[in-house]
């Protein structure tokens, strides 16, 4: 095991870099919500409002060559790992030019060849996938690699979560598994999801390192995830991170989240991590309000111009799709009349 180190403080550059990614993700998601209401989105919209601080902190310490398998509320983490406004909008708006070419949508996008995995909807499924990817890297003789994946509180109840984390622990893989406990799995509260004192206690059962963080606080998130990623990179085995926060939107944009307990909304856990981060920037005089307003304006400019561009792009043409689920065309079945 590496010797424990005092975690150096978060620098202004590190904080502002993360904040600006959070801001861009927030602005983009606000646009997605408005496009959804305008009927412009193909399929559903699932937003990460309130989860940006934790999400960006997972991906910011990752490097090129690492693996990241985000979940549905990780727009900020995705962008910190290299996803773009363009790819996001192409996927949501169903452009043929996007990475998924209309074959899959919204949050199911990725570029697996670049270590950016495309989640399937079945929660927990990416845990063993990332573990297997890390196993492969080890077999290939690569060292110093980290694989991170994100889940919600609901996914901790799945078999895939249990099997994947346990298998990663057995192999002592450099997996960083981050749970955003946003208090609700769709409408199901924590009280109907688990009865352990805290989700962090699950780490004991798997024999993995545990990190708990107030996920409304960007500085704490950056510190905790930086430490967890480093521990995994240095051979400390799987790192289990639980961030407490409140989902500040519905499960999807179709959901008004009327079931959320008002007491949670007014409690510290219900604070908006983006506003808190901005307050901290101002308080520490890392930037002025004029500068943060300019950053927002810049983000809005990029999002709006990209929407204009993508809306003019063609959607997939059913006649051009080869309708091939196999990499070898000779495996295609031919059904009479089809």
């Amino acid at each position: 095991m590496p010797t424990p180190k005092e975690e150096p403080p978060v620098t202004s550059a590190e904080f502002i870099k993360a904040y600006r990614v959070m801001l861009l993700a927030r602005v983009l998601e606000e646009k997605l919500a408005s496009l959804y209401r305008g009927g412009m989105i193909k399929g559903g919209v699932f937003l990460g409002r309130g989860q940006e601080a934790l999400s960006v902190s997972v991906a910011q310490p990752l490097r090129k060559g690492d693996i990241f398998a985000p979940l549905i509320r990780d727009q900020a983490g995705r962008m910190a790992f290299g996803d773009t406004v363009l790819d996001t909008l192409r996927t949501y708006l169903g452009s043929q030019l996007g990475p998924m070419k209309g074959r899959d949508g919204n949050i199911h996008r990725g570029r697996p060849r670049e270590g950016y995995y495309a989640m399937i909807s079945h929660l927990g499924a990416m845990v063993p996938a990332v573990a297997g990817a890390l196993l492969a890297r080890r077999l290939k003789g690569e060292t110093g690699i980290v694989g991170a994946t994100c889940l919600g509180d609901g996914a901790t109840s799945t078999g895939a979560f249990h099997e994947g984390l346990n298998a990663a622990a057995v192999e002592k893989l450099p997996l960083v598994l981050v749970v955003a406990n946003n208090q609700y799995a769709y409408s199901t509260p924590n009280s109907r999801q688990f009865v352990c004192r805290d989700l962090i206690d699950k780490a004991i059962g798997y024999g993995v390192a545990a990190h708990k963080v107030d996920a409304t606080d960007l500085e704490q998130c950056l510190l905790t995830l930086r430490k967890a990623v480093r521990a995994a990179r240095e051979g400390g085995g799987p790192q289990f991170v639980v961030g407490d926060l409140l989902r500040l939107v519905g499960h999807g944009e179709h959901d008004d989240a009327h079931y959320v307990d008002p007491a949670l909304k007014s409690a510290p856990i219900g604070r908006d991590c983006l506003l808190l981060a901005e307050e901290q920037i101002i308080a520490k005089a890392w930037a002025t309000r004029t500068e943060t307003a300019a950053w927002r304006q810049e983000a809005e400019g990029e999002v709006n111009s990209t929407v204009d561009k993508v809306r003019r792009e063609p959607g997939p043409n059913p006649e051009d799709d080869d309708w091939m689920a196999y990499s070898k065309s000779e495996f295609a079945e031919h059904y009479a009349g089809a």
Partner: peptide
Amino acid sequence: PLSEDAIIGMAVGAAIEGM
């Protein structure tokens, strides 16, 4: 481990990485 979901899931991840 006795974990069929993890066994296949890990195989998928390893295959993406070229194994």
